[in-house]
């Protein structure tokens, strides 16, 4: 395997995606931005909170702490929604353009191709999730007194970190691998999108369930979801390794 070839394919993938029109921009940039913006609204109603006393802050936090769960919802969503559009596109566009045969006629190895396509989808998903979280923190810093933020960090810090550092990579990998596997087998873009949405649903539902049941202050539950994702990821990896054999790509991807 050479890094140069993997890198070449990733860059090509992104260059193509950037020119990919509405679907790409809505799925990867517009949607996360809008969702992130929405998550700020509740805090805006909190009004100017700077300068309130510590006692009042504690009282206030008791009341608003649930508000911090809404943005979390979105940070659980981003790593799944973004690969959904990139990964499907990465496979479907090669199939539609019949570019796989000339591509495989180069010294490119199929494991390099697989790795490049996976990274091309997982990396931006993580980057956008993390940047969105950075934005979220920055805006909170601006809207809320630091004491409130400190209290929030005490209560939700471990969940946030777990979401960003554990759930996000596992979920992004899951959606990427699932979408790619589906895209190799389906000849129509809409069907692929529909099927991969079905794959996303159980994970998202579990995550939302955890939140609405107010269970997220028990990190073990999210840990359990991550463990389940890890098992799924490994299974999907095995499946994709089979699907990405040269023979398979040339004769059975439709």
């Amino acid at each position: 395997m050479t890094l140069k070839r993997i890198n070449t394919v990733i860059v090509k993938e992104w260059r193509e995606a950037f020119k990919g029109g509405k679907t790409f921009w809505i799925g990867t940039v517009a949607l996360p931005l809008v969702l992130l913006g929405v998550s700020f609204f509740p805090f805006l109603y909190a009004g100017d909170l700077r300068g309130i006393s510590t006692e009042e802050t504690k009282e206030l936090f008791e009341k608003v702490s649930m508000l911090f769960l809404t943005p979390l919802l979105f940070f659980l969503m981003f790593p799944m929604v973004i690969p959904h559009s990139i990964a499907i596109y990465a496979i479907m566009s090669e199939k539609e353009q019949k570019s796989l045969e000339p591509l495989l006629a180069t010294p490119l190895r199929t494991d390099e191709l697989f790795l490049a396509k996976t990274l091309a989808s997982v990396l931006p998903a993580l980057a956008i999730t993390w940047i969105a979280f950075g934005l979220f923190l920055a805006v909170m810093q601006f809207l809320l007194p630091s004491t409130v933020l400190e209290l929030a960090w005490q209560q939700f810090g471990s969940i946030w970190l777990m979401t960003l550092l554990l759930f996000a990579p596992l979920a992004a990998t899951f959606m990427t691998l699932a979408s790619m596997a589906i895209a190799t087998r389906v000849s129509d873009l809409r069907t692929a999108q529909l099927l991969s949405s079905f794959a996303m649903l159980p994970i998202l539902m579990s995550a939302f369930f955890l939140i609405f049941q107010n269970l997220l202050d028990k990190p073990a539950l999210l840990g359990g979801l991550c463990a389940a994702l890890l098992v799924l990821d490994i299974a999907l990896l095995g499946l994709n390794v089979k699907l990405f054999r040269r023979e398979e790509i040339l004769t059975r991807w439709r």
């Binding site: 050479t2 140069k4 070839r5 070449t8 394919v9 090509k12 260059r15 193509e16 020119k19 990919g20 566009s93 353009q97 019949k98 570019s99 796989l100 045969e101 000339p102 591509l103 180069t106 010294p107 490119l108």
Partner: peptide
């Protein structure tokens, strides 16, 4: 089997890089 959204130049550059 060319990449329709990419320019002629980028299409060739991609393959040139794969051949190093």
């Amino acid at each position: 089997g060319l990449y329709e959204k990419l320019s002629a130049w980028h299409n060739l550059k991609f393959y040139a890089d794969l051949h190093d």
